[in-house]
Write a protein that binds this DNA or RNA. Structure first.
Length: 425
RNA sequence: GGAGGAUUAGCGAAGCGGUCAUAACGCGGCGGUCUUGAAAACCGUUUGCCUUCACGGGCACGGGGGUUCGAAUCCCUCAUCCUCCGCCA
């Protein structure tokens, strides 16, 4: 959500930004919201005057009652009652207008960073850098589910009976590998100075509304029946929610946290769940990182964040590349975003394993996350990034570390988390 | 899950239908006097949001709703905390 004052003062900047994101259908909303805002403020002024009047007369009534002048007090009461209906009507209008304005402001996209490449959709995302050689081995790499099954590490049939399509049982060494990756990712971030955190896995609707749009919520979030609770789709939700309605002293910034959580997603509207794999599923686990910082530092933090993911994958001998989201593919709340993609030697292409985003002050404005600084109070900037999210992450791990003989080598960094094993065989 | 009590500024706490909410009082913070410097003492200052060029005005006493001319105060509801009971890793 952008600042309505900014929209008021520089509507052309907001419109240009909408054009850059190829959302021209939203252009009329800018002028509409300017008009609504103008009306809203004048009605608010009128209502405030009536309230001021009522407050003044009420005080007079109090004074009269104290002096036992009942008749005069009754006259004053009538005076207030006269304007009561008008005030009620104005208050109703105030509410309506505010609602309309908020609704529009929620869909006006955040101003994208000047460095974001312009493009219509994900086909125009831009590769930034490759890290590691995307090797195509001279032997065939099987489908990831097959690799897992070779180690008796995956049981999708039972999962379908128990929970349905989109769930999995991980077994034995594959399950252990899953936990090892999470633990390794956790320690990797702790060593980089992040504070480890295990957050709530369910959040209330007001937090949900603060961190995502209604459309996203409908497509992603599982609701708990009979409770005002939703299963989190990522720990970013509960981690950013941690700061809801807070004023953070400047001296306590930046807040750098790494969180673990299971993630639950409906994947409604997605291209269908992969029938035989763990690529797109309803439940996975994720080590995440989030940063709350001063506005002038969010660019720096953005670069630090995605590099963490690249380095983690490189330490496990997985080739990756960074891909920048073009303007049209960038979610409305985001200022800038990089995907980290891992190399798939089977598909001979890269696929998404993480996403790093700078939200600017958009999330902070929605959730009222402010900084108390020397020169006053202002909205914080928030960022988030994936460290590692298995089991999808295991696809990249298994495909890249599988040898010609079918064994899977365990890179040195991960060996302590696998009880010293150097390979799965 | 059941019973009772509570939620007021950075913290503690008074107020329990109307010049005590522009929130007493205390602590803390900030500025000053005094001092070579510090402490003590004394004086002053110290919530946020919206609106306005400004003066000013409005809103907020855990959240939401209601009663009233007027609500921190009365009613409903939700949340959180404390005490006791029950249950449970």
């Amino acid at each position: 959500m952008i600042d309505i004052r900014m929209l008021r003062e520089q509507p052309e900047v907001v419109k240009d930004n909408i054009r850059k994101k190829f959302q021209d259908h939203k252009l009329p909303l800018v002028d509409e919201v300017i008009q609504l805002d103008l009306t809203s403020r004048s009605i608010k002024q009128e209502a405030d005057d009536l309230r001021a009047n009522r407050n003044r007369i009420s005080k007079e009534i109090g004074a009269l009652m104290a002096q036992n002048k009942k008749e005069e007090a009754e006259n004053k009461k009538a005076e207030v009652a006269n304007k009561a209906t008008l005030l009620l009507e104005l208050e109703e209008k105030e509410r309506e207008l505010e609602e309309k304005i908020t609704k529009i402001m929620m869909v006006i996209p955040n101003i994208i960073d000047s460095s974001v490449p312009i493009g219509k959709d994900d086909t125009e995302n831009v590769e930034i850098t490759k890290y590691g050689e995307p090797v195509v081995p001279d032997f065939e790499v099987p489908y990831h589910a097959e690799i897992m099954e070779d180690f008796n590490g995956l049981d999708l049939d039972s999962a379908r009976k128990v929970a349905g399509n989109g769930f999995y049982y991980l077994m034995g060494d594959i399950a252990r590998l899953h936990s090892a990756v999470i633990s390794y990712a956790r320690d990797f971030m702790i060593e980089r100075g992040f504070t480890y955190c295990v957050p709530p896995f369910m959040i209330r609707s007001n937090v949900v509304a603060g961190v995502m749009s209604f459309a996203e919520m409908d497509a992603m979030m599982y609701k708990i029946e009979g409770e005002d609770l939703y299963l989190i789709g990522t720990s970013e939700h509960s981690m950013i929610g941690k700061y809801i309605d807070t004023i953070i002293p400047e001296s306590e910034l930046p807040q750098t946290l790494t969180s673990y959580s299971p993630c639950f997603r409906k994947e409604k509207g997605a291209h269908g769940l992969e029938e035989r794999g763990v690529y797109r599923i309803h439940q996975f686990e994720k080590q995440e990182m989030i940063v709350v910082c001063k506005p002038e530092e969010s660019h720096l933090w953005f670069d630090k964040l995605w590099k963490n993911t690249v380095e983690l994958f490189r330490s496990l001998d997985i080739p990756v590349r960074t891909l920048e989201c073009c303007s049209g593919d960038l979610a409305d709340l985001k200022v800038k975003s990089f995907d980290v993609e891992a190399w798939s030697p089977r598909q001979k292409k890269y696929f998404e394993v993480g996403s790093c985003s700078n939200l600017g002050d958009a999330q902070a404005r929605r959730l009222k996350i402010r900084i108390n600084g020397e020169s006053g109070k202002y909205f914080a900037h928030t960022l988030n990034n994936t460290v590692a999210a298995p089991p999808r992450m295991l696809i990249a791990f298994l495909e890249n570390n599988r040898q010609a003989d079918g064994t899977v080598r365990i890179p040195t960094a991960l060996q302590p988390y696998m009880g010293g094993k150097t390979a799965l065989s």
